[in-house]
C-alpha cells in the first residue's frame, strides 16, 4: 500500500515518522498530563510542571481509602457490565433478524434505532427523571442500566448487522439443507462466525456506558448508584481545605486504565467495529 511512485526512500520514511510522532503526541499528551498530576505530591501539584519533580502514590492510596471512590468504581463496573451484556444479547438477536430474516416491521425497527442513535440524550433526561422517581428507579442501578441499554442498542444493532451481513447468506441455507432448524442454524453456524463481531460490539458498548456522564449525574443522587465520572465531579478532598486535584487525577487515571487496555489489545477490532457500524450501516 505504498504511495504512488514506488520505492520507499529513507527520506519519506523520516517524514512519515515525524508525522506519526506528531499524531502520537497529540493523542497522548492530555492523558500523560493527568497521569503526571496523579503522581505529584501535594506540595508540587501547583508547580505547573509537565513532569512531576517528586513521585508519590499517595493520591492513589487516598482514593482507595474513601468509600466515595470505591463505591463509585463498583457501581461503574457493575452497571457498565450488566448494561453491556443485556444490550449485546438483545442487539445480537435483533441484528440477526434484521440481517437474515424477512419479517414485517423490519424497516421500521431500523428507522427507530437510527432515530434513537441520533437522539439528544438530554431530551430523555427530563421525562426519565420524573418517570424513574415515580417507579422508585431513581438513584438505583436499574435506573441507569435501562437508559444505557436503550442508547447502546442502536449502536449494537448497527454494528452487529453490518458484521452479520458479511457472513455469506448461503451458509445458512446450507445449514438448513443439512437438516438444521432456524434456531440450530443460528447457534451452530451463524453464532460462532459472529462471535468476533459480538465481542467488538461489546467493547464499543462498554466504552459508551463507561463514558456516560449526563444520565449518571441526572438520575443519581447518592453513592448508591453514582458512577466514577460523577463521583469525580463531586470530589472535594478529605477536608474542606484540601485541594482535591491529586485525588481527581488519580481517580481519572484509574478509570482510564480499562480504556487503554481495550485500545492496546483490540485496536484492530475497535477500528473495524466503529467504521462498519457507522459507515456501512
Amino acid at each position: 500500500m505504498a504511495g504512488i511512485g514506488g520505492a520507499v526512500t529513507t527520506g519519506r520514511k523520516a517524514r512519515w515518522t515525524v508525522l506519526n510522532v506528531l499524531v502520537v503526541v497529540y493523542a497522548l499528551f492530555p492523558v500523560l498530563w493527568i497521569v503526571s498530576l496523579s503522581f505529584k505530591t501535594k506540595e508540587t501539584l501547583g508547580d505547573g510542571n509537565f513532569i512531576p519533580r517528586e513521585w508519590t502514590f499517595d493520591n492513589y492510596k487516598t482514593i482507595f481509602s474513601t468509600t466515595e471512590f470505591v463505591r463509585a468504581l463498583v457501581n461503574s463496573i457493575g452497571i457498565a457490565l450488566i448494561a453491556t451484556a443485556v444490550a449485546v444479547v438483545f442487539g445480537t438477536m435483533a441484528a440477526y433478524a434484521i440481517a437474515r430474516l424477512d419479517f414485517p416491521g423490519k424497516r421500521l425497527l431500523i428507522g427507530v434505532s437510527l432515530l434513537i442513535a441520533m437522539f439528544p440524550q438530554i431530551s430523555l433526561v427530563s421525562p426519565l427523571f420524573e418517570i424513574e422517581r415515580g417507579l422508585g428507579l431513581f438513584d438505583t442501578w436499574p435506573g441507569l442500566i435501562l437508559p444505557y441499554i436503550t442508547f447502546a442498542l442502536p449502536l449494537a444493532i448497527y454494528t452487529l448487522s453490518a458484521f452479520f451481513r458479511e457472513i455469506p447468506w448461503e451458509l445458512e441455507k446450507a445449514a438448513k439443507m443439512d437438516g438444521a432448524t432456524p434456531g440450530q442454524a443460528f447457534r451452530r453456524v451463524i453464532a460462532p462466525l459472529a462471535a468476533p463481531g459480538v465481542f467488538t460490539t461489546a467493547i464499543l458498548v462498554f466504552i459508551f456506558c463507561w463514558n456516560d456522564f449526563l444520565f449518571a449525574i441526572s438520575l443519581t443522587s447518592t453513592e448508591a448508584s453514582r458512577t466514577v465520572p460523577v463521583a469525580l465531579s463531586f470530589f472535594t478532598g478529605s477536608s474542606q481545605f484540601e485541594d482535591p486535584t491529586g485525588s481527581i487525577a488519580a481517580a481519572a487515571v484509574v478509570i482510564t486504565i480499562p480504556i487503554i487496555l481495550f485500545v492496546l489489545f483490540f485496536q484492530r477490532r475497535i477500528v473495524a467495529g466503529l467504521t462498519s457500524g457507522a459507515v456501512k450501516g
Binding site: 455469506p168 451458509l171 441455507k173 446450507a174 439443507m177 443439512d178 438444521a180 453456524v189
Partner: peptide, 20 residues
C-alpha cells in the same frame, strides 16, 4: 415441509463451507 424434513442435500455455487 421445511428443508430439513425433505431429506435432500445441496451443493452451492459458493460451496457454503462453514469457515469455523
Amino acid at each position: 415441509r421445511a428443508p430439513k424434513d425433505r431429506d435432500i442435500a445441496m451443493v452451492f455455487q459458493s460451496y457454503a463451507l462453514y469457515p469455523h
